[in-house]
Design a binder for these strands. Structure first.
Lengths: 241, 241
DNA sequence: CTGCCGCCTTGACTTTGATCAAACCGCGCT
DNA sequence: AGCGCGGTTTGATCAAAGTCAAGGCGGCAG
């Protein structure tokens, strides 16, 4: 209802924001038209290649971003090189850790990504003035916490084949957020190595479980990356969820 | 600074709140003296035995709480009975999922616990009126998210002995929040079975790794529950952190 | 076309932690 | 004291996933 009212004044909304999902499902939905205009003057739209570090040791994170398209992976690393992907972010997620520069996490693009970046100081100021913005951030953070805890169950208690099925199910439902049952087709945003880091497995084990799912006709693999799921329900069963 | 100013008017603050950690490090720090008085009239202090379900299938969660003392475990369960502890909460953590009744998580007391409970509707209203309260909730949620992601690395990439050492390190640092290095002594708030559910292991493996740490003189076990850590640094090494 | 390179798959073998089974320990009870 | 009980430890065996090694596939540069 509120969103609809704003759309009446669509002409006042910055061009870049008009078609942006972040205004509907993301944090920008908390902002007034005036605020959008101000923010828009400072924001920059960037196309980023796959495999680029957005936040991390090298990148000191002077900005926050909204993901417009593509997939970003959040990774934690141990001193000896072992690593674990602790989250995947899709459009229109908000990227960046408020109130703290470093949280020991690096964010890398898993695919080609488009982001809308803002100066950190600007957002920090807007958060202070606009409780509604902080509310949106709390909502996203709670959602991420729920997802992190779901994944803890997967990491701690599922076996390799359930883990791989869980991953495919996660991707299937996030790439095509509408589909509930029936058949889905999508391109995996992660390499086998990334999938292994997400699942706490090795690439060999991931590969073996993928071929097992293929032989059991739960999935159909085209180009290593392109996957068809004829029956999402059967995949969910394999994931034990 | 702000807290100090409030303490000058200590006499106006409800008796129950005066010594309460939640007013200093918890969410109640966001509230004015007036709000504390109002909230106090509706709040109830409860002593709860170990092993009681606070939030879950049975309990429909009509209230939020602050933990005054003791440890609460957050558990996720699979249909076939496998379960994973996805978080531990200590005083003065806020207990309850805002904006949603059910998140598939149950909260059980791991020890005897004292909580201060409030009606859900009352807090939901205060959140709307007091941005500072929402800010505190966002801070705690971000802290929980950081902890969840730390633990994902442990679950996904550490071996059994590193997991057990990580758990002991976590407890040591949370029970005695001041100690940095040197020796610590504490009582484990969890049974071997809970520890196994927290670490994604079996009780036998937990037991074996504990005796290994004991034989290597990293820890000293008294009554199965009472543990001495002569050198916290050496324990941290074993946890690879 | 050919060869190389990155990514993925497959196979043989090893290791880690799970499973099954038995015994132990402290404690409250009769 | 003797008993039973929950929680814990220990040992023997097994299975799942890791490791090491080889080979395949597809795209791209020469």
């Amino acid at each position: 209802m509120d969103a609809k009212r704003k759309d009446i004044h669509n002409s006042d909304i910055p061009v870049l924001c008009r078609a942006c999902e972040a205004r509907h499902r993301g944090v920008c939905g908390a902002l007034s038209t005036d605020q959008l205009v101000i923010l828009n003057k400072q924001s920059t739209l960037k196309r980023v290649d796959s495999g680029v570090e957005l936040i991390g040791e090298a990148q000191q994170a002077e900005s926050y971003s909204n993901i417009i398209s593509g997939v970003v992976k959040l990774t934690k690393m141990m001193a000896d090189g072992r690593q674990q992907i602790v989250g995947l972010q899709f459009a229109p997620d908000f990227l960046g850790r408020p109130f703290r520069a470093d949280s020991g996490i690096t964010a890398d693009t898993a695919t080609e990504v488009n982001i809308c970046s803002f100066p950190r100081t600007m957002i920090d100021r807007m958060i202070k003035d606009t409780p509604e913005l902080e509310h949106k951030l709390l909502e996203q953070t709670l959602k991420e916490l729920d997802e992190a805890r779901d994944w803890m169950l997967t990491l701690g208690r599922k076996n390799a084949s359930e883990k791989v099925a869980s991953f495919l199910y996660l991707i299937a439902t996030h790439i095509n957020p509408e589909l509930q049952a029936g058949s889905v087709s999508f391109e995996l945003p992660l390499t086998r190595s990334d999938i292994a880091d997400f699942l706490g497995l090795t690439i060999e084990t991931v590969s073996r479980q993928m071929t097992k799912l293929r032989k059991d006709e739960v999935i159909l693999i085209r180009n290593n990356r392109q996957v068809d799921v004829p029956d999402l329900g059967r995949l969910a069963e394999r994931a034990s969820q």
